[in-house]
Simulated assay, not measured.
Amino acid sequence: MGMETTQQMKALDERYFMPAFSRDMAIVKGEGSKVWDGEGKEYIDCVAGIAVCSTGHCHPEVVKAICDQAHQLIHCSNLYYVPHQGEVAKKVVEITGMHKAFFSNSGAEATDGALKLARVRTGKKKFVAFTHGFHGRTIGSLAVTHKPAIREPFEPLGMEKTFVEYGDLEGLKKAVDSDTAGVIVEPIQGEAGVIIPPDTFFEGIREVCDKSGALMIVDEVQTGLGRTGKWLGIQHTKVKPDIVTLAKGIASGFPMGALAAREDLEFKKSEHGSTFAGGPLACAASLATLGVIEKILPEVAVKGERFRNGLAKYNPRVRGLMIGITIGDKCPEIQKKCAEQGVLVNCAADGNLRLVPPLTISNAEIDTVVKVLNGTLG
C-alpha cells in the first residue's frame, strides 16, 4: 500500500468522519523529532501528538517491543494475568511514589477511575476543580473540566462540583467541605497554555485536603513521565498526592492511561474494570517507553533551558520541555507560519502558543525551532 495523499485523506474525512476536529494537514510518517506530511514535506514536531510521543516517533526500542509482543499475544482480557502488566504497575508505583496502580486506555478514563476511587473510598460525593483545567471529555472527566464551551452543552453531567480560580487558596478553603470527595488539579495547566502556579499553591491544597478528609488528585496526564524534567510535575514540590493520573507519554502513542494511589486506597473486586485496559501490547509499549525515558530524563531540564534562553524576549513559561508563550490573537497565524517553515507548534487556550516536543529532541533541532519562532514572532 502506498501512502495516501492529503487530498485523498481529506475527501474521505469530509464524507465519512464526524467533523469534530479542525485540521488541514496530514502526517503520514515520523522518526525521532521529525514528521512528514502527505506530500513528503519534513517538519520538526514540537507538538508530539500533544505531549504523547516523548520518546520521539517510532523509537526503535518501542517499535521492537510492540512487534515482539504482537507475535506472542495481542489480547487476552483481564480475566487472566496479562504479560508485562505487573512489571509496568511496579514501574508506575516506583516513579510516582504511590502504592498500587490501575490501567486505562486514556487520560480521560484515568480521570474517571480516580473520581470513582475517591467516591467509593471516602463515601463522599462532591469534587472541587479549577478554572481553565482540563481533565478529559468523557461524561465523568468532562464534569470536572472547566471550559464552558465544551462542558455546558452536555450538562447535567451527574457530578456535583465547584470550580475555583486556579491558584486561589482562599477560594478553595471556602469550596471544600465535609462532603468533598476530592480536589483535582494539574501541576501545570497544559490545555490552558502552560500555566505554572507557585509551589505554595500545592502545599495549600494538601493542607485543605488533610483538614477536610478530601483526597488530593493530581492530574499528571500532560505533565507526567518526564515532561517537566522529573517523573511527575508535582515532584517539583514536596507535596505527596493521594491519587495520580497518567496517560499521554506512558506508551509512546499506544493508547494507555494509568492511575496510581497511596496505601489504603485501591479498588476492590468488581469496583472497576475495562476490557482493553493494560493489555499485552500497551504494557509492552509502556515498559519500553519508560526504559527510554529513564535514560533521557536528566537531559530534559537542560533542553528546556535552551528553549528558555533562545526565546527569552517573549517571556516563555518553561518547565522542562513544556513551554508556553502568550501571543494573543495572532496565535493561529504564527502556528501556520511556523508550519510553512517546517516547525509544528500548537495553539492552546487564550492565545497561548504551546511547545511539547519529544524529550529526545536534539540541541540542533531546538536551535532550528528557536530560529523559526524568533523569525515568525518578530
Rank of each mutant, 00 (worst) to 15 (best):
M3S: 09
T6P: 04
Q8R: 04
K10T: 13
Y16H: 07
A20I: 00
F21D: 15
D24G: 11
M25N: 12
D37Y: 04
G38L: 07
G40L: 05
K41D: 15
C46L: 08
I50E: 12
A51G: 11
S54K: 09
V63P: 03
N78A: 10
Y81Q: 15
A89E: 11
A89K: 06
K91N: 13
V92S: 01
V92C: 01
I95S: 03
T96G: 06
K100Y: 01
A101V: 03
A108P: 02
E109W: 01
G113N: 05
K116P: 08
L117W: 01
F127R: 02
T131M: 15
H135L: 09
G136K: 00
G136H: 05
R137K: 13
L142M: 15
A143W: 02
H146L: 07
P148E: 14
R151Y: 01
R151V: 08
P153I: 10
F163E: 13
E165N: 05
D168E: 07
K173D: 04
S178K: 05
D179Q: 08
P187K: 07
Q189C: 03
A192S: 14
I196R: 04
P198M: 08
D199W: 00
G204R: 01
E207T: 04
C209L: 10
S212Y: 12
D219V: 10
D219R: 02
E220G: 03
G224R: 00
T228G: 11
K230Q: 08
W231I: 03
L232W: 08
I234D: 13
P241M: 10
D242V: 02
I250G: 04
L259H: 03
L265P: 14
S274T: 09
A277I: 05
C283D: 15
A284I: 09
V302A: 11
E305S: 04
E305T: 01
R306F: 11
G310L: 05
L311Y: 05
A312I: 00
Y314R: 02
L321I: 12
G328L: 10
K330S: 15
Q335F: 14
A339C: 11
V343H: 08
T360W: 00
K371A: 12
L373K: 00
L373H: 03
G378F: 05
